[in-house]
């Protein structure tokens, strides 16, 4: 068969279906991963000794375990103790845990970069600790964490392919199935790779726009140096 015809008539339509699943995985995982990251970072930084220890241990364990093994535990392991997820749910939970743990490291770094004086000033103005964190510290820290968080988002796009290993037929899964059926491997996986490259590149552009959109004039270091 003509390779051009194969790519346009067979491969791309099939990949579109896989792309929908990949996007579903990402769209479900990313917001909760961000929320978990914020929660864990805040817990580590402002929580009591017990909470911060719990958050630290969580990050330690997740960062030390391969994501694929985490997915195996969620999908193949948990049913043995009576907890059963669908493959899609297990993948999303795995991605949220992994994404959240790594996000929390960037957010914690950003939290540390906000000076103590701001917390003291906010409390002197009558805010509670929680209010100060929510309205003063976090809005600044999250802006500073954008580059790191966008990196993690890009990792999430790429590692969403691991869901195929627990039977979720997403983009690379569809690619594998088509390649095996037609015995056309190199071209198929190149095209699959290009779709991922496109997703990653679109994300990079979108993040640059987002960063400019939410920028507060005078807040970043370059602007401060000019003062």
């Amino acid at each position: 068969m003509d390779q051009i015809a194969f790519i346009f008539d067979i491969l791309l339509p099939a990949l579109m279906q896989g792309l929908v699943v990949t996007l579903k995985l990402i769209v479900w995982s990313a917001p909760f991963g961000l929320a978990l990251g914020i929660g864990v970072a805040a817990g580590r930084q402002y929580g009591g000794p017990v909470l911060s220890r719990v958050c630290k241990t969580f990050v330690f364990l997740i960062k030390g375990t391969p994501l694929l093994l985490l997915l195996f535990i969620l999908y193949f392991g948990l049913p043995s103790i009576g907890i059963t997820f669908t493959a899609l749910t297990a993948s999303v939970i795995g991605f949220i845990l992994c994404n959240g743990a790594y996000n929390s490291e960037y957010i914690r770094g950003a939290l540390l970069s906000i000076k103590d004086g701001q917390m003291i000033a906010a409390q002197a103005l009558g805010m509670t600790r929680a209010q100060a964190i929510r309205n003063v510290i976090m809005p600044q820290a999250l802006r500073r964490a954008i580059p790191g968080l966008s990196n993690e988002f890009i990792y999430l796009i790429k590692y969403s392919s691991l869901a195929y290993m627990i039977t979720v037929v997403e983009l690379s899964g569809v690619g594998k199935n088509v390649a095996t059926k037609y015995f056309i491997y190199t071209e198929t996986f190149m095209v699959v790779g290009i779709v991922y490259l496109a997703l990653v590149t679109i994300t990079t552009v979108a993040v640059n726009i987002l960063e400019k959109r939410v920028a507060v004039p005078g807040m970043n270091r370059a602007a401060a140096a000019q003062l």
Partner: peptide, 19 residues
């Protein structure tokens, strides 16, 4: 750009089955 943009799983499939 190429090697950082592709998932490791796709790279492994590409080289193992294809290249």
């Amino acid at each position: 750009w190429f090697f950082r943009g592709l998932p490791i799983l796709v790279l492994l499939f590409l080289f193992w089955f294809g290249i």
